[in-house]
């Protein structure tokens, strides 16, 4: 509600009190889709899916893997890898400083977290992109960690699962980043040679260099409902083609309709669904 007319009626001392009606930060969260105010503990119990409209909110990498893997028998992979500013890249800020603040903000060293563990007893290697870390962008550490995770899957003869959420390649590592597209795609070919399945789960959003490499190379491509997935961003496309984008453009449902995905899976169903699929594609590993 605009305060312009209200301001004229209310005595000046009363104005500040109107602000107090806002929802206290922390305990409540507003759903970006339906606008409902949600009690945080309830929301978390619901895996950050809006109980009113089923909107799948973004969640961080560590929580993602925590929801996916069994509580017992987890081992983090390649946690020691740290990014290096090879180009001494500087735009309006230094890349070094951007890295430091992303690390502080997320508690992660870079934008990919990798774990070995089990899902309902079935052994698996799982990685997740941290979107809060420079937009989940793929630089050399993301590429290297992905490779190490894939190699761990090969070593232990188990499937690889990737939850992607990324704006694409990391600009501050320039061509080094671009080459990670080739590197991650190449290691997936090794996985294939070893007849181990790769499950690519796309979560909101997946774009650019990540979409155009590892994310689209799943033996089975899955996505959460209503996630934005594409090669080029909607703004770039709109500026290029100079026409309005169709309703639902680049949403999971659009991709399923156009043949890019095998299935759309509700967050609550991911564990069951992936377990079911892994167990059929690679039965000898069943617990």
């Amino acid at each position: 509600m605009s305060s312009s007319w209200l301001g004229k009626i209310l005595p000046s001392v009363g104005r500040s009190s109107t602000k107090k009606t806002e929802v206290p930060e922390g305990l409540w969260k507003k759903c970006a889709k339906c606008g409902a105010f949600l009690y945080r503990p309830e929301l978390e119990k619901n895996q950050d899916v809006c109980p009113k409209c089923d909107h799948h909110m973004r969640i961080n990498a560590r929580r993602r893997l925590d929801l996916f893997l069994d509580a017992e028998g987890r081992e983090e992979l390649a946690a020691e890898l740290e990014p290096v500013d090879r180009l001494k890249f500087k735009d309006s800020k230094r890349y070094k400083d951007r890295l430091a603040s992303a690390q502080k903000g997320t508690g992660e060293k870079d934008a990919l977290v990798a774990f070995r563990g089990t899902v309902q007893g079935y052994p698996v290697v799982a990685v997740a992109f941290e979107f809060e870390f420079l937009g989940g962008s793929m630089g050399t550490i993301v590429g290297e960690k992905f490779v190490r995770a894939a190699n761990a899957a090969i070593e232990h003869s188990c499937p690889l699962v990737c939850f992607s959420a990324s704006g694409g390649a990391r600009m501050q590592e320039a061509l080094f980043s671009l080459m990670q597209m080739a590197k991650t795609s190449a290691v997936l070919e090794k996985l294939k040679e070893n007849r181990l399945p790769f499950f690519s789960v796309m979560t909101d959003p997946v774009y650019g260099g990540v979409s155009a490499s590892l994310a689209m190379l799943g033996d089975i491509n899955l996505a959460e409902p209503n996630a934005l997935i594409g090669f080029a961003g909607p703004r770039v496309i709109e500026q290029t083609v100079r026409q309005k984008l169709p309703e639902g453009f680049q949403r999971s449902e659009f991709l399923l309709e156009h043949g890019a995905l095998d299935m759309i899976v509700h967050r609550h169903e991911l564990r069951d669904t992936l377990h079911r699929l892994m167990d059929k594609l690679l039965p000898q590993n069943a617990a």
């Binding site: 597209m181 490499s213 190379l217 090669f231 290029t240 453009f249 156009h258």
Partner: peptide, 20 residues
């Protein structure tokens, strides 16, 4: 090309597949 049809026909997948 960043276009509507390019996205519909799987620009990302086409690029990714070639890399592999």
């Amino acid at each position: 090309y960043p276009g509507i049809e390019a996205e519909e026909r799987g620009q990302s997948e086409a690029i990714a597949r070639n890399l592999a």
